[in-house]
Design a protein around this nucleic acid. Structure first.
Lengths: 369, 369
DNA sequence: TACTGTGACTAAACCGGTTCACTAAACCGG
DNA sequence: CCGGTTTAGTGAACCGGTTTAGTCACAGTA
């Protein structure tokens, strides 16, 4: 007696139940087309055999996978250690689950995002943090795969979700200026190595050239300009968007001789790292140094002192992206791309305070002006 | 002229290039079986047509998906907000990426994990935190899908990865005891609603009955027993494994009149929440209250004071699980399940200190003994 | 009795690839 | 020039389902 080691197929069930493959298929998908007894009997036989319809075969005939992709230019391992991304995924996951879709994370495979995209079996993609000129954007468009861009520059052909980064950054800078600070340090998110020039030069410490960083920088600048100051390049450093990244960026700035009274950080992780580094250097927060973050991750309210930061609706960003994507996936024809811009909001907590008296310059002028 | 709206198929490329489907397939998968020029020409035609082999069809014929599933009994949204899981995923993702596999997260779909498993197209699954008697374990075995269990009780048929929870918990308790503490509070991870009894009763605050909680409880007990004490049920409370969960669990204990000098928390998130709640109640840490966590997530070293905790190699757990799973996936026959047990290590930081003098009982006896 | 309709079920085509078995032509040493 | 091996390529079967277009038996109607 030969032992069948592979899973039973629809044909096995059909033979065993003495019906056609079609009948078995009907028994599962449209039982009303069969007499009640037949449908029941088929399902019984199927159960006894341990039959489970092969989902890959089903995907092939239905020409849809009921799976959505989340595309990121960074490795999964990096992604998961980023609290911002965790929140975003939460939003995406929630919406996808509600609508009955599975989720598939697409990140560079063997260093190649193109390869990963080619292999992936999804009905549509949410791309996060992918600059609009990234080559994969073109690849996905070429493949005719519906896509929603999040935190990119707007592309007319694709729906998109962004937050008003510029207004948020401006609010952060205005808050700091209103407290009398004039000597600022901006810590941006550095460009990851994978996006750097091929020769590997100038990778570390260089601000990312993508939309988010640019927009936030514009916001900071706008506030400073309105107050009669400006933001010279040597007041901008960059680091990885993590606690350690913020920590070492602040140390680097300190070593370069900078002695700011306030730090504008482009992410909460960076802000928290900067606070740690500052404290290790003997500074008290907010007495000696004010720090403002960006994002308002859950941790922000839980550090000591609680972090003043720019809140952005991260979960909602994920949920909205899925909603837009499904609108396109489910009614392919006659679909017009939609562009959503969500608002930000400054949340003042304990990490900012008036500029220390000792550092107060006469008339609160900007240094050198 | 009819516009072809669907993607080109292999037959289109074959026709356009004047060759057979087989040749096109060869051009991509085994070009050495074709003359160099033919292979090149076919690829050119394919490129011009924007042809991309349909990965679903490929999966069907190859009968493998090059995708691994990560199975969790909780909703994705919950998962992503859990730093422990983020670390674990990091380990899984790293290993999977190295080996050329995609990752697919499987979590309850419309509340049904069974449905999600049925739909998923994976070559094998890593199940985390699924108790061994969970019905889905049986379902997956029935489907003949390779599976590795993480943090469950060992099942002889499946490979598994666990850490030595009992020894870790014992080390934590011994540390606390050696500092003179006798009045302890244990905060366990509560059973999630989805695992509770159907009538919804007794869900909140009840410790989870899965292997991890049990093993850690045993470890705590062993240390206490060896020191001549014990761990009555009213010294154990439970909360969600999050900062807020720990916070409210501690508040609940306090409201019940408990005034411990030390807290043994079953996760760092809970420990951090307990510290916050304690501080809000006017307690100083570690002067008035010592707190020990479990896991050693990245944040543990970054809170104030830095958290004393039991380190477990979370990333490695993920990586090892993938390694074991692939051993089974890639050579289905003649495979013997393997069981890995990783070590834990107590990391003493700033959240634990000798019992406050005011609370020191004569002879350091246990209360009531 | 012939005609029409309906309920229950089926054979065959199809989804889009891969692969097995085979062939025609070129090559090759003796 | 012969028999055997390589090279380059092909047609058909196959993966495991769904779906289209019937077939067949039987009941109802004129």
């Amino acid at each position: 007696m030969e032992r069948r080691r592979s899973r039973p197929r629809i044909a096995d069930v059909a033979r065993e139940a003495g019906v056609s493959k079609t009948a078995v298929s009907f028994a599962f998908n449209s039982p009303e087309r069969l007499s009640t007894e037949t449908a029941l009997r088929i399902r019984e036989v199927a159960g006894a055999l341990g039959y489970r319809p092969n989902p890959v075969a089903r995907m092939l005939t239905q020409r849809q996978t009921m799976t959505l992709g989340v595309l990121t230019p960074q490795a999964l391992a990096v992604i998961f250690s980023n609290p911002f991304f965790a929140l975003f995924s939460e939003g995406v996951a929630h919406a996808a689950e509600d609508l009955g879709y599975e989720l598939h994370f697409i990140s560079p495979l063997h260093g190649s995002l193109a390869l990963a995209v080619g292999r992936s079996t999804v009905d549509g993609v949410v791309a996060i943090g992918l600059s609009a000129d990234h080559p994969e954007v073109e690849q996905i468009r070429g493949a005719g795969l519906p896509m929603v861009l999040v935190d990119s520059d707007d592309l007319p052909e694709h729906s998109s979700v962004v937050v008003d980064d510029e207004a948020g950054a401006r609010a952060a800078a205005e808050h700091i200026l209103s407290l009398g600070h004039r000597d600022l340090l901006v810590i941006a998110v550095e460009r990851p190595a994978s996006e750097g020039p091929a020769d590997g030069s100038g990778v570390s410490g260089e601000p990312r050239r993508n939309g988010v960083t640019e927009r936030r920088l514009r916001g900071y600048r706008a506030a400073l300009l309105a107050a009669g100051g400006d933001l010279p390049d040597d007041r901008i450093v960059a680091g990885r968007s993590s606690i350690d990244g913020g920590s070492s960026a602040f140390q680097r700035a300190w070593a370069m001789g900078l002695r700011p009274t306030a730090v504008l950080a482009m992410s909460d992780a960076i802000a928290i790292g900067a606070m740690r580094a500052a404290r290790d250097l003997g500074l008290r927060i907010p007495d000696d140094l004010s720090v403002v973050g960006f994002d308002d991750i859950d941790l922000a309210a839980h550090v000591d002192p609680p972090l003043t930061t720019v809140h952005q609706p991260i979960r909602q960003k994920g949920a909205d992206a899925v909603r837009l994507l499904l609108a396109e996936v489910e009614q392919r024809e006659a679909h017009r791309p939609e562009h959503i811009r969500l608002e930000t909001r400054l949340i003042v907590r304990g990490s900012t305070a008036p500029v220390p008296a000792a550092r107060l310059k006469v008339g609160s002028e900007f240094p050198g002006t």
